[in-house]
């Protein structure tokens, strides 16, 4: 289990997200090899990545959306994805990731691959999240005035910092009640 007290979102994580948005997933892959050797080291980066994905889906779908809009969106993304790649990602995992990002309370615990043992699930999750993030980001970028990367970085940093704080507090609470 990750000791969240040892995790803090800092300049490295901010720079990493900036690099990801500017240069694409390959740049992140390089970082992965250099800086994410342990769970604790990787945790900050993963929180930043999930935060950026969450910002993207919130910007795309806002507050008013239907599940079927998400279903149709994921279907379109998979069709595009398969044009350039002979792999695919699970539609259910992608839909549930988007719904989770939008705060859908009706999702069940088993709907979302979180356990690291679920290797296939986690791979599909990360592929889907990466593809959604870049689809939303690049579509917005076409009509943006150049500040978009910083907007994403700032919003994602605030969100990731909040999540880490919440996890630290939750873990402290667990420890206190366990003693």
């Amino acid at each position: 289990m990750i000791a969240w007290s040892a995790v803090e979102i800092g300049d490295d994580h901010v720079a990493a997200l900036r690099l990801l948005l500017k240069e694409g997933p390959e740049a992140w892959e390089r970082l992965h090899k250099e800086k994410m050797a342990t769970d604790e080291a990787a945790a900050g980066y993963m929180q930043m990545f999930y935060a950026a994905f969450t910002i993207a889906v919130r910007r795309k779908f806002g507050r008013a959306y239907t599940i079927h809009q998400i279903v149709q969106y994921v279907a379109r993304l998979r069709i595009e994805f398969r044009e350039n790649d002979d792999s695919d990602f699970s539609p259910r995992i992608a839909e549930n990731a988007i719904r989770a990002g939008l705060g859908d309370q009706s999702l069940q615990k088993g709907d979302y691959p979180q356990a690291i043992e679920d290797v296939r699930g986690v791979q599909h999750l990360i592929t889907a999240q990466t593809f959604v993030l870049f689809d939303v980001f690049l579509t917005e970028e076409e009509s943006a005035d150049g500040e978009l990367v910083e907007e994403y970085v700032q919003e994602a940093t605030e969100l990731a910092q909040r999540w880490v704080r919440e996890k630290q507090e939750a873990q402290l609470g667990e420890r206190a009640s366990g003693e």
């Binding site: 279903v71 149709q72 279907a75 398969r82 539609p91």
Partner: peptide, 14 residues
């Protein structure tokens, strides 16, 4: 083709 099947299933789910 696969694309047509993906689209049909997504549509059917609505």
């Amino acid at each position: 083709g696969d694309d047509e099947i993906i689209e049909f299933v997504a549509e059917a789910r609505g």
